[in-house]
Amino acid sequence: MLGKLLKYEIQATSRVFLPLYLGLLAVAVAASFTLQSNLDVLKGIIMFLLVMLYGALIVVTVVLLIQRFYRNLLKDEGYLMFTLPVHQATLVASKLVTACLWSILSTIVGAASGMIAGRSLIDINGIADAISQAVEFLAENSISPLLVLLAFSVGAAQFVQFVLQVYLSLAIGQLPSLSKHRVLSSIAVFIVASIAVQIIFTVALSGMVPSFMEFAVTANDGFEIAYGLSPAKTSQAVALTTEMLWIALIYNLALAAAMFFGTTWILKNKLNLE
């Protein structure tokens, strides 16, 4: 069932994204030529277009994420979706997966456009050097690739948590007691939730305060700060960072799971289609 829902979700949303992606890439290609030329007016127009489309890319990705959930599940289309023989959890999951999918694609397309547009300005060798320097730095300071992976995972978990926070806010906003001011309620809930999430995270990290203090105190040596940390301090920094990242990962995943169940519960028991 999830597969079927995803199929239709993607059909519904690709009608917006694919033209946008194509447009952005096309303008990027145009820009890559004009940047090399001396046609200042044309250069300006294309750059302007490029910037506009970039903006559109970000806005559209975020807005569509919210709008698909709201319009397809909480407005009239909800009468169709919630009478399908699928679990509410599957419906929420289908929205989440497509949101992640398009976010990843948008990022890729954005980055690709940037590289295409600025290809004349890119120095391939320079990039290769930078990359190998970065890899060296990681190796010297015993920062394993796993740590990098962990960092990315935390980023992904935060994103998933963000999306689910949006969904939960929308679900709460449609509750009978709040539905007179759906939009306002949802926004209010989202803001309150964001604040709460931050506060709780800080509390979660508070256990690490002693370690941070210890690190900060002993690192208060101008020489170290100016010329880089000693191996001992570096590994301590890495350990602290690793611990913080793990806390962040578990925290975000737990929060995401809680928000997922919360949203699903509300849609199952307190659905309030007009």
Binding site: D76, E77, T83
Partner: peptide, 20 residues
Amino acid sequence: GVHSKKIVAYLPERTYLNEW
């Protein structure tokens, strides 16, 4: 639940058709 939705056909008063 999911089971009953398989055998129940519902026609709401509103139009639930999407645009695209």
